[in-house]
Amino acid sequence: MEPAGVDAISEMIALGTDTMWRYLIDRNDLSASAALVLNRLNREGPMRLTALAAAEGASQSGMTQLVQRMECQGLLERSSDPDDGRASLVMLSAAGRRNWDSRAETRRQRIAALLPAVSRDDQVALWLASQVVVRVLGQMREAAGLQGPVAE
C-alpha cells in the first residue's frame, strides 16, 4: 500500500479514537486502563491474569493491582481455571457486565445525538463504511494478536 493510503488509515483510526475518548464514553467512573480491561474481557471472555497483562501490554504486578481494584469495585471476579487448578481466571462480574452494557448504551446514545449534524447521505455512507471498517479492523486486531505487540 502506498504511504498516502497508510496515512489515511492512520488518520481515520486516530480521529475515531479521539472521538471515542473525548465525546462518546463516560470517563468519570473508570480509568482508561480499567475500561480497556472491561473491553477485552467482554470480547474475549475469562483470562488468566498473566495472559491479560500480556494482552494489555502491562506488567503482571501492575495488572494484579488493577484487577484487585476492579474486584473491590465489584466489576471483576476470579474463578478456578478448569485446565489448571493452581491458576485462576479473571472475568466480568454481573456488575461488570452491567457497567459494560451501560457504557455501550451511553456510547450509542451519544452517537445518535451527534448524527443529526450529519447529512442523511453521509449517515448512510458512514453506516456502509462502518460495515467494512469493523471487518477490516477485526482482521488487523487478529493479525496484531498473532504477531504480539508491534514494536515502534
Score class of each variant (00 low, 15 high):
90 V>A: 01
26 D>C: 02
143 A>G: 03
53 A>P: 03
110 R>Y: 08
8 A>F: 08
121 D>F: 13
139 Q>T: 00
15 L>V: 12
60 Q>V: 14
31 S>G: 03
12 M>T: 15
123 Q>Y: 06
73 Q>I: 11
89 L>K: 00
29 D>E: 10
125 A>L: 13
145 G>V: 00
19 T>A: 15
100 W>T: 07
35 A>H: 07
152 E>S: 11
60 Q>F: 04
16 G>Y: 01
66 L>K: 07
33 S>D: 14
62 G>L: 01
85 G>D: 00
12 M>I: 13
58 A>G: 04
82 P>N: 05
34 A>G: 15
12 M>C: 12
142 E>S: 07
7 D>K: 15
9 I>V: 04
41 L>E: 00
56 E>P: 01
89 L>Y: 01
27 R>S: 12
24 L>N: 00
92 L>I: 02
94 A>N: 00
94 A>C: 06
33 S>P: 03
33 S>L: 10
93 S>E: 05
98 R>P: 10
35 A>F: 08
130 S>W: 11
98 R>T: 05
6 V>A: 14
70 M>Q: 09
81 D>Y: 09
101 D>T: 12
84 D>I: 09
66 L>D: 15
71 E>P: 03
131 Q>C: 12
28 N>D: 13
78 R>D: 00
53 A>Y: 01
39 N>K: 10
141 R>Q: 11
59 S>Y: 04
42 N>H: 14
50 T>P: 01
141 R>M: 04
149 P>L: 09
129 A>W: 12
18 D>M: 03
21 W>A: 05
79 S>I: 03
68 Q>A: 13
26 D>M: 12
93 S>K: 04
68 Q>E: 15
99 N>R: 11
139 Q>I: 11
66 L>T: 13
50 T>W: 01
11 E>R: 14
95 A>C: 13
138 G>M: 08
105 E>L: 09
123 Q>S: 02
71 E>N: 07
128 L>Q: 13
146 L>W: 06
122 D>Y: 03
